[in-house]
Write a protein that binds this DNA or RNA. Sequence first.
DNA 1: AAAGCGGGGTC
DNA 2: GACCCAGCTTT
Length: 347
Amino acid sequence: MEKIENSDFKHIGTKLLNWYKQNARDLPFRQTKDPYKIWICEIVFQQTRINQGLNHYNNFIKRFPDVKTLANAEEDEVLLYWKGLGYYSRAINIHKAAQQIMNDYQGTFPSDYDEILKLKGVGKYTAAAVSSICFNGKMPAVDGNFYRVLSRIFADDFDSSNSRAFNYFSELATLVLPENVGDFNQAMMDLGSEICKPRNPFCGECPLNEDCLAFSLNKISEFPVKTKTVKAEHLGLKYYFVHRNGQFLIQQRKDDFIWKKLFEFPHEISEELMPFIKSAKTVNHKLTHKNLSIEIFNVEVDSEIVWTDFIAENQYLITDFEGSHEKSFPKPLETYIQNYHTAYKIL
DNA sequence: AAAGCGGGGTC
DNA sequence: GACCCAGCTTT
């Protein structure tokens, strides 16, 4: 950073704020400073594009409009509203944090950055975002947009996959930070989303193009630098769709590994059930870090005694497709077995 | 410091 | 197929 030591870059922040006044996206959480709603939206949209999470956010706020409602809800229902969104620790943590606010802060959302940071599932980015947007806090909310925009403006090749990148770009952000940090943080998100996109950015329309070193060097595509990438490994899973008379068996996942605490079919069956396997189908499903191939067996139990014995020996939930809609299944099951009748067609 | 965790859009 | 997204927690 020595090349920029004695320079003043505050005009960049001012320009960005002026652009934001005219070009801010019209989003449901832009019309409030309720820290609860801002907090929820920050969690929902972690690693998630606006269009992808908008319905989840709206449904979540409608069902859980305030901290108390969320804190008093059952965890299963919170997960039900989170299903399909991914990163399910967020739902579990958001629920615990609501109870933290009830117990430790008498139900009043903490206003201080350091206090907000103590909430489950809240890291430095989210604490900065909530405190700046709702309470005039002064911390930059450094996210992927900050990495990209700042690395381009300063043609800075600091590795954004380095674990020190957050601190590094936080310092870089302070060089351009205006007085209104809350609007600045949101402006950076909008600029990063609408103009300074990862690929093929609209530099001609960018309010900062005169200040952007990478643009003037015609090296936009070289920033940000990121050296480490995640490689997906293959994993095979087996599920048994065990059913009789319109009912089938499910169980809840653990809170380790993928799909934390969501519901699913049994992974295994007893020897007695093997003869009732009528068919099987393999479904491929890609996660960021895993390539799953899921083998789903159709187990149509024609014997009342075998059905009863199997249930007695295991801790499965008996449900039907109507009831299954009240459970948070991982997406593959909902995608490929949406109701009892299509299940027969597929399997 | 590095690994693990989802689902979907974009090119 | 590779990359990226309003990141955080665990190891």
